[in-house]
Design a protein around this nucleic acid. Sequence first.
DNA 1: TTTATAGGCAACCATTAGGTTGCATATGCC
DNA 2: GGCATATGCAACCTAATGGTTGCCTATAAA
Lengths: 99, 99
Amino acid sequence: MFAAIGDPTRLDLITRLADGGARSITTLGEGLPISRQAVAKHLDVLLNAGLVQRSHTGREARFALQRQAIEEARLWLDEVGAQWDEALRRMKAFVEDGD
Amino acid sequence: MFAAIGDPTRLDLITRLADGGARSITTLGEGLPISRQAVAKHLDVLLNAGLVQRSHTGREARFALQRQAIEEARLWLDEVGAQWDEALRRMKAFVEDGD
DNA sequence: TTTATAGGCAACCATTAGGTTGCATATGCC
DNA sequence: GGCATATGCAACCTAATGGTTGCCTATAAA
């Protein structure tokens, strides 16, 4: 999942979808210096990573952000942060104890 | 930076450093199925991404997590989450208004 | 029923990434 | 000094990535 977010183009796509709306491939690709196919591939990666969901409407394929996935990434980073805090707390306690 | 976190091996390394401690390359590589050089390369990527910091002690190179970088990643995800929440709030308000 | 629009599929390409091996260097310890 | 340990540097290899182009299918709109 982090690998999926790791590509600048995909990070851009995610930003464009951050408002929770659903957009077509062509729409999402507007302004990007790459072909529609390239955009489609990126969306595929995001889809496989569970970061977006796809729905078909007529001849259009619309993509929307999968909020839950973003949440998971946040949780992981929170865990690392928490572990760090805990270690820092222990270290501080140890120092004060020995003081 | 997300690209740096995106590799499983590097995610592992970060986890090993999550307690805030500093470790040598060899130590960090213990248990991993790859060569020391590969580990060193990964640490280099993390270093360039600002996720870890390096300090030399004698013949050892010790790496420690750069807390601030983790924080930045969290912030970004928070922003996307907040944007989402805001959009959801507006949508809800709109629906209730039209109701 | 044409014609234009939105995608899907597949083959192909160049670059990058993750790994490896071999060799050189620097520091610790006898 | 002499040997072991901890890295650093560089060349090389293979597979995955990010992109492209060409062509085919499906749905809108004239």
